[in-house]
Design a protein around this nucleic acid. Structure first.
Length: 419
RNA sequence: GCGAGCGUAGCUCAGUUGGCAGAGCACCAGUUUGUGGCAUUGGGUGUCGCGGGUUCAAGCCCCGUCGCUCGCCCCA
C-alpha cells in the first residue's frame, strides 16, 4: 500500500493554497487594524506547560495530546492549543514589563489525537489573538469585535455568536461548590462520563448531551443565582457594548468551554452549516492562567482562536471563493531549438521587469502550447518560430480578444515589459 | 475509546442471478503542413485497497486485514 499521511492529517495542495493564503491575509490585516502584533512560538513545548496551563481535568490534557519523551528523556508535547505557549513566552521574555497592554496574534498548526471527522483533524490550524493586561470588559469586547470582523471580512454570514459568563474566581468557586453538592446525591443516576467529571471538571456536566443527564439538569441551580455583583455588572457591560456595536449575540448559560483557565466572559462563534463540528471559533477571559503558570504578578488576559479548516469549509458551504488563482502575464512559445533559446532570454528579461512568465518545457507543438497557455490563463502569448526569426519579429497574441500583432525581435522585451 | 457506511481509471461513479473491466469529466493525439476556447475522430492511462477461502470461473460470495468517511464523545 502506498504511504499516506498519518490519520487526521492532510495535504494542502496548490489548488487550495490560494484560499489559505487569502484567509491568512485577511487575518493579518484585521489584526493590524486593531494594533495586534504577531507572535510565533514553538510547535513543541514541555508537557508540563499544558498540564498546568490547560488543566489536568480537561479532555485535551487527559487524552488528546501527542506526548513523548525525547532522546534526553524530556517530556514534550506537540501543542494542542496556543494560549498556553503564548503565555509562557510572555512570561519568559517579560513582555508585560514593556507595556501595560500587549496585543498579540498568532497563526499555526495544532495537534490533538482525536478521531477525525468532518471539520476535525489531528493537525489543524488556528488563527487567534490574545489581549493581555486589561481586566476591563472593553477588552473582552475588543477581542470579540476582532473575531467578528474577520468572519465578516471573509464574507461569512451563516454564523452566530453565543456568550456567557463564568463569573469571577469567587463566583465560579461558589457555583462549582453549589453544583457539586446538588449533583453528588444524584451521582449514581448520572452518565458514566458525567460522574467522572463530578470530581474533575463539574462545570462541563452542564454541557452533557446525555438525555438522562439533561433530565437531571432540568432544575440544576442557575449560575446567575450565585453570581456576585462584580461578575454581574461585568457581564452586563460586555453585553451593552456589543449591542452598541451592533454585534448580535445570544446569551447561552450552557456555554462553558473546555479549558480550565477561563473566567468571566466566554464566547463562541458557531454555525449550523457544518454538521457536528459547529464551533468556528471561541475564547474568553482567563485571569488565572498566568498564576497557574507560576507568575507572581496577576496578568489578566482575554483571547480567542478560530479554526481555519472550519472557516474554509464554511466558505465553500456558502459558495464564497477567496484567493482565486491568477494566470501568468505571458506564455512564451518557442517552436525550434533556436527559437527556444530566444524564449529563454526573453523570459528572463520579462521576469526582471516584474512580469510573470511561463514557458513550455515539453518541446511540444504550437497547438499543444497554445492549449497549455489557455489552460494556465495566460493573458498574452508570444510566438517565436523559424518564420518569425527570419522576419526578425515575434507574434504577440492577446488571449482574451484573439488580436495578434508583431513586435521587432530586438525591441520585444521592452515593448512587452510595458504591457 | 464506541457505532455505522464506503474502498473499481487522475476525479465523480456504474458494474445485473458469479461469465472478456465500463461511463462522464480530465488527460494525450489528430481533424487544421504554424495558433487556445467551440465542435468532431481516435486513444484506457486499472494490483477492482490488501491477504486468504469457495468456484471451471470472483469486482461481485465467505473470512481476515488496512484505509477512508460520517456520527457519539470532545472541540476549532
Amino acid at each position: 500500500m502506498q504511504i499516506q499521511y498519518p490519520k487526521g492529517m492532510q495535504d494542502i495542495l496548490p489548488s487550495q493554497t490560494g484560499m489559505w493564503q487569502a484567509l491568512e491575509d485577511i487575518c493579518r490585516s484585521a489584526s493590524a487594524r486593531y494594533g495586534y502584533r504577531e507572535i510565533r512560538t514553538p510547535i513543541l513545548e514541555k508537557t508540563e506547560l499544558f498540564v498546568r496551563g490547560v488543566g489536568e481535568g480537561t479532555d485535551i490534557v487527559g487524552k488528546e495530546m501527542y506526548s513523548f519523551r525525547d532522546q534526553g528523556d524530556e517530556a514534550l508535547t506537540l501543542r494542542p492549543e496556543l494560549t498556553a505557549g503564548v503565555a509562557r513566552a510572555v512570561l519568559q521574555h517579560n513582555l508585560m514589563e514593556l507595556s501595560g497592554t500587549q496585543r498579540l496574534w498568532y497563526y499555526g498548526p495544532l495537534f490533538r489525537h482525536e478521531r477525525p471527522q468532518k471539520g476535525r483533524y489531528r493537525q489543524f490550524y488556528q488563527y487567534g489573538a490574545e489581549l493581555l493586561g486589561s481586566p476591563y470588559p472593553e477588552s473582552d469586547v475588543e477581542v470579540i469585535q476582532l473575531a467578528y470582523d474577520i468572519l465578516r471580512g471573509l464574507g461569512l454570514s451563516e454564523f452566530s455568536l453565543k456568550i456567557n459568563t463564568l463569573g469571577n474566581a469567587a463566583s465560579r468557586q461558589a457555583y462549582r461548590d453549589t453544583l457539586v453538592s446538588f449533583l453528588t446525591p444524584l451521582a449514581d443516576k448520572l452518565s458514566a462520563e458525567s460522574r467522572n467529571r463530578l470530581g474533575k471538571n463539574p462545570l462541563r456536566i452542564l454541557d452533557s448531551k446525555d438525555p438522562g443527564d439533561r433530565e437531571l439538569l432540568a432544575d440544576v441551580p442557575r449560575f446567575g443565582d450565585v453570581l456576585d455583583e462584580e461578575s454581574r455588572s461585568y457581564f452586563a457591560a460586555v453585553q451593552d457594548m456589543l449591542t452598541a456595536l451592533d454585534i448580535s449575540f445570544v446569551v447561552s448559560d450552557k456555554l462553558v468551554r473546555g479549558l480550565d483557565y477561563y473566567s468571566h466572559t466566554v464566547f463562541e462563534f458557531s454555525t449550523d452549516k457544518l454538521g457536528a463540528q459547529d464551533a468556528l471559533g471561541g475564547g474568553g477571559r482567563y485571569d488565572g492562567l498566568f498564576e497557574q503558570l507560576g507568575s507572581k504578578k496577576k496578568i489578566p488576559g482575554v483571547g480567542f482562536a478560530a479554526g481555519v479548516e472550519r472557516l474554509l469549509l464554511l466558505l465553500q458551504e456558502e459558495h464564497l471563493a477567496i484567493g482565486k488563482e491568477q494566470g501568468p502575464d505571458f506564455y512564451l512559445v518557442g517552436l525550434d531549438d533556436e527559437s527556444r533559446a530566444i524564449v529563454i532570454k526573453l523570459a528572463r528579461d520579462l521576469r526582471l521587469a516584474g512580469k510573470s512568465v511561463l514557458t513550455d518545457l515539453q518541446r511540444r507543438s504550437l497547438k499543444a502550447q497554445m492549449k497549455e497557455a489557455d489552460k494556465a490563463q495566460a493573458l498574452t502569448v508570444v510566438i517565436i518560430g523559424e518564420a518569425e526569426r527570419v522576419a526578425g519579429i515575434v507574434r504577440v497574441r492577446n488571449m482574451a480578444t484573439g488580436e495578434q500583432v508583431e513586435y521587432s525581435i530586438d525591441t520585444a522585451a521592452v515593448q512587452l515589459g510595458q504591457l
